[in-house]
Write a protein that binds this DNA or RNA. Structure first.
Lengths: 330, 330
DNA sequence: TTGTAAGCGTTATCAT
DNA sequence: ATGATAACGCTTACAA
């Protein structure tokens, strides 16, 4: 910048003002300085800029798995909202590991982000609470605050679980099962709880098969296990904690058994990702407004930030049943 | 940091040394300073750090579409390689728009990233060449340098196109068609070119249907158009420029026609995303090593950076045919 | 409308 | 092993 100033024959302060339009500068000077900037290929230094101004104009987002289309959509919605607000979004992928989550939190803290959007991996949110209390706004995404003093944007998982079982039972299912994990994730345990409650209302037991993660691969391997069970032990309807599991489950059914979906085994997923529609047997699912979740998280964070309030809010969306072939006509 | 120094009764230089392990400090002092850091909740300021040291320890990646599983995998591979090298990765999504790409490039330039990985949206790479010539290493990802003086990591698209048609023709197809776009993307036009060449070798014409983008939605709408063509004008095999298009195309075939895949219409995609396997009719595809592409891009960039060389290299992977039901037995 | 100059919070070079 | 101190490149009062 000093070089630009020298080249244009003005002071650094003036250069700064033309770069930032922060003060009235004469047309002539603007032209002169602009020419020097181009000639020298000057690019302003974000580090110096941020250090001096104290502002960072960025938000941090930490999700469980960027390869999961649900979180890809959340990130997409958040990015759009950030773009509109002139902020840049830093994205971290915790892989459902607290250590990696913590690493990104530290990284973002060092960057002095204006706010943090987090889907926590573990149960202990005290680190986040600490960050929030030290002045960085924190918004939980797809996770309720529980006893912690934090704001959140969520979708009602228990309601979703109830919807899924309601639909399965209405279709005539007698031996429902739940597939998902880890149960330390409230997203998983709440869906299971809602489902179990609804099953109990119809005097049905719901078997539970726990997986280590929410991926296609995990779905496929638990599917292999379930289709090889003797008929009397096999469920007649399976509710998967997300669509990736359901897609993998379906692969296993088709590869390793002669069971028909939905006649022998009904299948319902969760999230309604784009591919649910295109599955071998189009997949019934519980749709979540993922994009909106990300967008709302950013907007709420910004609103809270602007108002300077310390009041924590919980925004909760309701999911929606999307019926397709994988559960039709049992 | 000054506060920490005062609290611990040492100088700021010493605090810096314990934070960075950059010089020998006595055990006692380390303990004392660490206690003060915890007590005051000190977090080092990345901006000041970078400003003073001149180092940024981050890489920038700009891809065409983060919602596309292919690029999600590329980003995943790149992130892993960055993690291993102790770098953080900034990701930008250009949405195949040059203006957005340019915006991210400027943003990353201001951040003084140590290197840039880019899948360009347009044909003019002079901006990237300029950046590279000004000292920031640039690596093209999934795009060749053409006449520009830039390094690249790619997968052979023309070979992939040839493979696709070879397979279709071996299956007895007589009226092949290509679906994809925009053709300004070399990934698309090279696949089409390879396919057309192979078709010509068998004295076959290949119809071309251009789409505006490479999404499920675009595939569905072009699919609607194609299945409603009179039989004599309708292709008997369709090669889609990527799997998203193919998935959407398949949706249209099933919703809006009675045509069977592959008996009436064979379908082949490109990328072999996870969902190809689970499509209504499992999708034949040309597999690209997406993860490896991202990883290699980072590693090559770092290697080039370390060696301080200006020699540009082109690494080219070869794709692989994965046969599934959508083309089997015509 | 433009110039001057004091920091922002670190790191790194010298002394001590 | 520790301390003092000069930058790093910019923003922003304030002065001219």
């Amino acid at each position: 910048m000093r070089e630009v100033a020298a080249h244009a024959g003005v002071s650094v302060g003036t250069v700064s003002h033309v770069v930032n339009r922060s003060q009235k500068v004469s047309e002539d000077t603007i032209a002169k300085v602009s020419r020097s900037i181009d000639a020298l290929g000057f690019v302003r230094n974000a580090a110096a800029r941020q250090l001096r101004s104290g502002r960072s104009s960025s938000l941090g987002l930490v999700v469980l798995d960027t390869a999961n289309p649900f979180f890809a959509s959340v990130a997409h919605g958040a990015r759009e909202a950030c773009d509109e607000a002139g902020l840049s979004l830093l994205i971290g992928d915790s892989g459902t590991e607290e250590a990696r989550e913590s690493k990104y939190l530290d990284l973002f803290a060092e960057q002095r982000v204006n706010g943090l959007l987090v889907t926590p991996s573990g149960a202990d949110l005290s680190k986040l609470e600490g960050i929030a209390s030290r002045g960085t706004p924190v918004m939980l995404v797809d996770r309720e605050a529980g006893g912690y003093s934090l704001s959140s944007v969520t979708v009602d998982n228990a309601a979703g679980g109830r919807m899924a079982l309601d639909h399965l039972i209405a279709g005539g299912c007698a031996k429902p099962a739940f597939v998902g994990g880890p149960f330390t994730l409230p997203q998983v345990s709440d869906r299971a709880r809602g489902a179990r409650e609804r099953a109990a209302e119809s005097d049905l037991d719901m078997a539970v098969f726990e997986t280590g993660e929410l991926t296609i691969l995990a779905g496929r391997s638990i599917g292999e296990r379930i289709v090889s069970l003797p008929e009397e032990a096999r469920p007649d309807a399976v509710f998967c904690a997300n669509d990736l599991l359901a897609v993998g489950f379906m692969q296993a059914v088709i590869m390793f058994s002669a069971l028909r979906i939905p006649e022998d085994l009904a299948l319902i997923g969760y999230d309604d990702i784009d591919y649910a529609f295109s599955a071998i047997v189009p997949l019934t699912s519980i749709r979540q407004p993922a994009d909106l979740l990300g967008r709302t998280a950013v907007e709420s964070l910004l609103a809270e930030n602007a108002s300077g309030e310390q009041i924590h809010r919980d925004e909760k969306f309701t999911p929606e049943l999307v019926v397709r072939q994988s559960t039709r006509a049992v």
